[in-house]
Amino acid sequence: MVELTFDPAEARAAEKPQDPRRASLGRLILTDRFFKLLTRAAAAFVLLILFGVIFTLVEGSIPALREFGPGFVWTEDWNPVKERFGALAPIYGTLVTSIIAMLVAVPIGLGIAIFLTELCPIWLRRPIGTAIELLAGIPSIIYGIWGLFIFAPFLQQYVQPFLISTLGNVPGIGWLFAGPPYGIGILTAGLILAIMVLPFIASITRDVFETVPPVLKESAYGLGATTWEVVWKVVLPYTRAGVIGGIMLALGRALGETMAVTFIIGNAHRISGSILQPGTTISASIANEFVEALQVLHTSSLMSLGLILFVITFIVLAAARLLLASLNKRAGG
């Protein structure tokens, strides 16, 4: 008696050699599936980088955080010999240099963007715009070496004595400009950061300004508005989210910037009221000490600094991206 069974796999196998077309189609489908999986894995890899960074930093920070607890964040000590570490001075330096950079670079960057979109003759717009974008790509170590050899001596000789003798005597803010002119220090680092993020702010805000529909500007001009009124009452309100997003993106850069600052901050682990004195930032501390750190606690404290820096910049950059995305959505819809 013949058993009547039907095995689909066997049937397919039996069918295949008779139908080369189906076989090659099957191969194509398999390859396609493989390729799709491969690309998906690569996309997931980007997420893996992020988790890897967070995991490594947290894991490296554990010894320091176990030893010092949350007090690590608000302790000023930094003494590798006694193995006492606290993050306050680098955090303070990072924030103050970035604030100085933003105070200087934002108005100038916006000025450049306004100049490029409203005032500059058309034939000059592309060359200047391109030059600014190229400058945004210059590595930070170039700004660092320039700051160390040219800018800091210049400040020390001409600008800082002037600041000390004038603003240094103003009651209320005099303490900001106290002490001898070192050249290097918090103020110099802030100014170099400002010069560094300037092309960045200028080119982003210019791009954002260009998303304003010409009709809006033309109708304002048509009603007799001056250029300034168009900028202030039409362009800026329309692009507010994008401009703030661009500024925060630049802030993210300034906070994490390493080489330009390391050259000229002076690397002193202390908080001085005067912005003319040397200080340190998170990234400068890591760059200077990590290779030489011998004790576990020292290395781990530097890792904790890296973790703090990453968390701060992550928040700032995420906020910046969300703001820029909201502008894009409006421009698209």
Binding site: V53, L57, G252, G256, T258, I286, M303, T313, F314, L317
Partner: peptide, 20 residues
């Protein structure tokens, strides 16, 4: 979203990551 953040994340932190 994550890629855009990594685009401007501090490069020194990447150094620490690879060290680890």
């Amino acid at each position: 979203f994550i890629n855009d953040i990594l685009l401007s994340a501090p490069s020194i932190v990447i150094g620490l990551f690879v060290y680890g």
